[in-house]
Design a binder for these strands. Structure first.
Lengths: 212, 212
DNA sequence: GTCTATAGTAGGATAGAC
DNA sequence: GTCTATCCTACTATAGAC
């Protein structure tokens, strides 16, 4: 009777799970959901396919856990909200900087997300409506307030965010294209510095009256 | 001996092929290469699976043809080159406008391309290096010349293009997310007008000295 | 040129020994 | 908790009738 009570998740189990999740994220990022085989994940993780199924009941369950972890990471690292006395352009600059750091440090997370959205967000749809949309409306409202208060020049708040997301995530999602065009084996810190410089400068010059 | 000589590709055959290609593009866009089954393509095209194989020897061959057609379309519609006396900001504006029109009119092409790039461009790699890279270097050189001549403010030419591509293609590739956030069933002309307005205004204000 | 039938295989998932 | 063996479905592709 008492045997079924789950004991502590055992450090060993947690180690194995995160090992599998890391491998899965990598394969899902590069191959998409359908292109990913449990065998491929097993090989990357250095574990047998059957053993993976012991930890995750199905490929679908594994994929959902990977997606969850991606979103947890993003929510943790990316809150736009600012203190009332914060300078708008600084808030936006930091937001862009943070998004670019995510693309640099977690490119696979970004690609998993991108694959899911391109494929119509079959699983994330619900989450996007329940969590991301309220956040989005809150953030665009803040932009609108800044405009009303004359702190920044008038701008379309919704498309401002679409622009920031697209042009920061591209350094993760489309890195293969960018690398080829820049003639590099992989993107370096200098490339991210240039991207940060370019994007923040452009946004600043369009949100503030030119002090030149 | 003479029977094997290919006669004209027969209008009927061409009709069937383009019917299949249209269907294939749609499924590849939404499901990716691995998520696409010949059966799904067959259903969308309204043709039997075996008949599709009659026209295209394999799924791989079908995919390559779809990719080829996508690239042909993009090359045809998107040359950045301008006459020597053209106004730089106008050239860039028209380029942005054109890219947004492609996202609006051929969202599936864009998604097929995006899937391929995210997955590391296994098939397109060669083409990107041989065709897109020279074009890219030509275009960035033109931007540099404009800067030297004082026609536009200094800007990073490479990242200018990365930004334009990312923030115009996002309206095709990430349309499901954008739709959800805007609370719309599908993107309308008005949304593309706003996007055009937003992006061209921002670029202009950062490339020209504010005349305000 | 289009169909039916089917071969061949990959991959997700289960059962059960250890 | 990990492994071996195996089932079963889904999918690409071929052979051959019509």
């Amino acid at each position: 009777m008492s045997e079924k009570i789950p004991r502590k998740p055992s450090a060993a189990r947690q180690r194995q799970e995160s090992r599998i999740l890391r491998a899965a994220e990598q394969v899902f990022a590069l191959k998409g959901f359908n292109g990913t085989t449990m065998d491929a994940v097993a090989q990357v993780a250095g574990i047998s396919k059957q053993n993976i199924i012991y930890y995750f009941p199905s490929k679908d369950a594994l994929y959902r856990r990977v997606l969850e972890d991606v979103l947890d990471l993003w929510v943790e690292k990316m809150t736009f909200d600012a203190s009332p006395q914060a300078v708008p352009t600084t808030v936006i600059e930091n937001y862009i900087r943070g998004k670019l750091e995510l693309s640099r440090d977690y490119p696979n997370s970004s690609k998993v997300f991108a694959n899911e959205i391109i494929n119509g967000a079959p699983i994330l749809k619900e989450y996007l409506v329940s969590h991301l949309k309220p956040q989005f409306e809150h953030d665009t409202a803040l932009i609108r307030r800044w405009i009303e208060e004359g702190l920044i020049k008038p701008v379309d708040p919704e498309h401002l965010f679409f622009f920031i997301w697209a042009s920061t995530q591209t350094y993760a999602d489309f890195s293969s294209q960018i690398q080829l065009l820049l003639g590099k084996e992989r993107l370096e810190q200098d490339d991210f510095d240039r991207a940060t410089q370019f994007l923040t400068t452009m946004v600043n010059s369009s949100l503030t009256s030119d002090p030149a």
